[in-house]
Design a protein around this nucleic acid. Structure first.
Ligand code: FES
Ligand code: FES
Lengths: 144, 144
DNA sequence: TGTATTAAGGACAAAGTTATCTTTTATTAT
DNA sequence: ATAATAAAAGATAACTTTGTCCTTAATACA
């Protein structure tokens, strides 16, 4: 479904939400180890996620690292997809037609659209915080 | 969702099902033009699809080309995915964990699994013939 | 001020996917 | 037989994604 980069982005963000706070930041190594992703590649992804400190925040130097503000934790999962520029793969035609539309639908369109709606609903409804809680409560893992 | 190769495979198969018969085969050019895919790449995909004449059938030489037997037309869409070795992308964890399981679920697992079931249902239920009919009846397109 | 620490940024490498081109093989019709 | 036709097969190219490495910049603290 998603690219490796976006998978790591999702896992990293949720992981940071669960483990970090502004007083207790996570280093790149913490994150990569925590979610089981390649360190250097994860660094690149963290750069995207923490660009302008919009979704994830970061500071350099001793005791620096990554964290997520309480406000950002309330963001829905889809915010991560948007950040990774993969928001619109949900809109694509399942058969790869240039445009998915009701006027020129592919033969799977009307059935697939309800599935897409469910997917979108999931990503729009679930917040980063909620998924972090699932892990915190021991009901889910993200560690590979 | 799927790779370009699999998208072309799905469209090509459905297109051939709609347009061809054993007496009226489609050439590679017919197929590539019909679904709007790059000719040479499509050739490679047709090789996979018609390997052993299992899903799509092909013959060489004058009046040769591709066609689909009535029996193969009754196959569900998922047969095309299997043929393209993309059947199992439906089983993958949405967050990219190595294994999607109930015992060590990711925080989206239980919601995502119903979506996966819907997807699988769609691909298992709809036959190649049915989708070809949609196009034949003017209710859908596949031509880009 | 200087040094250690940590992320940011840039250049590059490896692997995978998509796409093209050329040659070979099978088949038909003359 | 020969020529024409059309797919199969192989080599290779272009592009994208994934991944690494090295240098630079920011920050804290002694
Ligand atoms: S046109 Fe194919 S999914 Fe909408
Ligand atoms: S474990 Fe992630 S979808 Fe099943």
């Amino acid at each position: 479904m998603f690219s490796k980069a976006t998978e790591y982005a999702l896992r990293a963000t949720i992981y940071i939400a669960q483990k970090s706070s502004i007083e207790n930041k996570l280093s790149l190594d913490d994150v990569a180890t925590g979610i089981g992703s390649p360190r250097a590649f994860t660094a690149k992804i963290m750069q995207i996620l923490s660009k302008d400190n919009k979704l994830v925040s970061s500071t350099r130097g001793p005791n620096g690292g990554f964290y997520i503000s309480d406000k950002a934790k309330e963001q829905p999962i889809i915010a991560i997809l948007k950040c990774m520029n993969e928001r619109d793969i949900i809109d694509k035609c399942v058969l790869g037609l240039k445009k998915c539309s009701e006027k020129e639908p592919c033969p799977l369109h009307f059935q697939y659209k309800t599935i897409k709606a469910d997917l979108l609903g999931l990503f729009e409804l679930k917040s980063i915080q909620q998924l972090a809680n699932e892990i915190e409560d021991g009901n889910a893992t993200i560690s590979n």
